[in-house]
Simulated scan of single mutants.
Amino acid sequence: MEFLPAQEDLWHIGVSILCGSLIGFEREYRNKSAGFRTIVLICLGSTIFTIVSKYGVGSDDRIAANIITGIGFIGAGVIFKDKFSVMGLTTAAVIWTAAGIGMAAGIGYYGLAVSLSVATIIILSLFSKVELMFEGWHLTRVLYIGFHDTDLKRLEEIAALLDTHRIHYKRKSISKHNHKLSVVLELSSNRNRLRSFNDSMVTLDFVEEFYYNS
């Protein structure tokens, strides 16, 4: 029985912590729910299970499969779904990726683990600018509007305003509560037109509140 870890295992652990720290720092900087410590521990935990599987007899595949299953539960826990939108998908994907990187470090593929960590940071950091560029061309958002009364003519005025700003829209639902009308619309346009539309919405007295769900 050995009480001290093998030097090779210490390298596995060190690289795992390094890779998890790289990704975790980016997540912490952006103030995500799965931050620095969480990502490091997920990466390290996957490495630990991978190292342990090395000392078992014929258990490698089973432990690796269980890592994937366990990480799936953690990833599902950070996904939030309301009536019209889903949030946390990117964070769940980062958790999944960090676990894979931890497994790579656990079997000694240091170059692969570090390379995947750098690639993940590039995707999270630089690709967000690509998303913003796409949003400049086309953007889809779900808009909730609450009115002060139940006058259906308000919907016609909103529709006219949308047409004025050349925004495509589709009504998803309409409801009444406490003698007040509310409607949910799906809007499609570019960022500048939506911004101009928002400025116009603020000036409407018959609109009690409005906000976007995604």
Rank of each mutant, 00 (worst) to 15 (best):
residue 88 G to T: 06
residue 111 G to M: 06
residue 149 D to S: 15
residue 62 R to A: 13
residue 82 D to S: 07
residue 34 A to G: 09
residue 70 G to P: 08
residue 45 G to P: 05
residue 210 F to R: 01
residue 169 Y to S: 10
residue 150 T to E: 11
residue 43 C to G: 09
residue 101 I to E: 04
residue 16 S to D: 06
residue 203 T to N: 12
residue 179 H to K: 12
residue 148 H to L: 13
residue 145 I to G: 03
residue 14 G to P: 00
residue 44 L to A: 11
residue 187 L to F: 09
residue 137 W to R: 05
residue 199 D to G: 11
residue 155 L to A: 00
residue 87 M to T: 15
residue 13 I to H: 01
residue 97 T to M: 11
residue 54 K to P: 01
residue 72 G to C: 11
residue 42 I to W: 03
residue 111 G to C: 01
residue 205 D to Y: 12
residue 191 R to K: 12
residue 79 I to E: 05
residue 147 F to D: 02
residue 193 R to H: 10
residue 82 D to G: 03
residue 57 V to Q: 12
residue 190 N to R: 09
residue 63 I to W: 06
residue 179 H to E: 12
residue 213 N to V: 01
residue 126 L to E: 10
residue 58 G to S: 08
residue 110 Y to A: 08
residue 32 K to R: 15
residue 24 G to M: 07
residue 119 A to S: 15
residue 146 G to S: 11
residue 64 A to D: 01
residue 118 V to L: 15
residue 54 K to D: 11
residue 114 V to G: 05
residue 172 K to A: 10
residue 190 N to Y: 11
residue 208 E to H: 08
residue 134 F to H: 06
residue 119 A to T: 14
residue 71 I to C: 06
residue 109 Y to G: 06
residue 122 I to H: 04
residue 186 E to S: 13
residue 147 F to L: 05
residue 32 K to Y: 05
residue 55 Y to I: 08
residue 107 I to D: 03
residue 159 A to Q: 15
residue 193 R to W: 00
residue 205 D to S: 15
residue 180 K to A: 09
residue 165 H to N: 14
residue 93 A to S: 12
residue 89 L to M: 14
residue 209 E to A: 14
residue 195 R to Y: 13
residue 197 F to K: 02
residue 20 G to F: 04
residue 117 S to D: 03
residue 102 G to V: 07
residue 79 I to Y: 03
residue 113 A to T: 04
residue 102 G to E: 05
residue 39 I to H: 08
residue 125 S to G: 00
residue 24 G to I: 07
residue 87 M to I: 14
residue 9 D to Q: 14
residue 128 S to F: 12
residue 37 R to Y: 08
residue 141 R to K: 14
residue 210 F to L: 05
residue 75 G to D: 09
residue 42 I to H: 04
residue 203 T to S: 14
residue 118 V to N: 08
residue 114 V to H: 06
residue 192 N to Y: 14
residue 204 L to F: 07
residue 71 I to P: 08
residue 106 G to Q: 05
residue 132 L to K: 09
residue 33 S to L: 01
residue 61 D to K: 10
residue 150 T to D: 06
residue 116 L to N: 11
residue 152 L to A: 03
residue 36 F to K: 01
residue 3 F to M: 10
residue 117 S to Q: 01
residue 88 G to L: 03
residue 85 S to K: 04
residue 62 R to V: 14
residue 149 D to N: 15
residue 212 Y to F: 15
residue 97 T to H: 01
residue 165 H to G: 00
residue 186 E to T: 11
residue 2 E to Y: 07
residue 115 S to T: 15
residue 168 H to Y: 07
residue 189 S to I: 02
residue 97 T to A: 11
residue 211 Y to E: 13
residue 198 N to Q: 14
residue 164 T to L: 13
residue 19 C to V: 11
residue 209 E to T: 13
residue 211 Y to F: 15
residue 135 E to G: 00
residue 202 V to M: 00
residue 9 D to E: 15
residue 213 N to L: 06
residue 5 P to F: 10
residue 157 E to V: 00
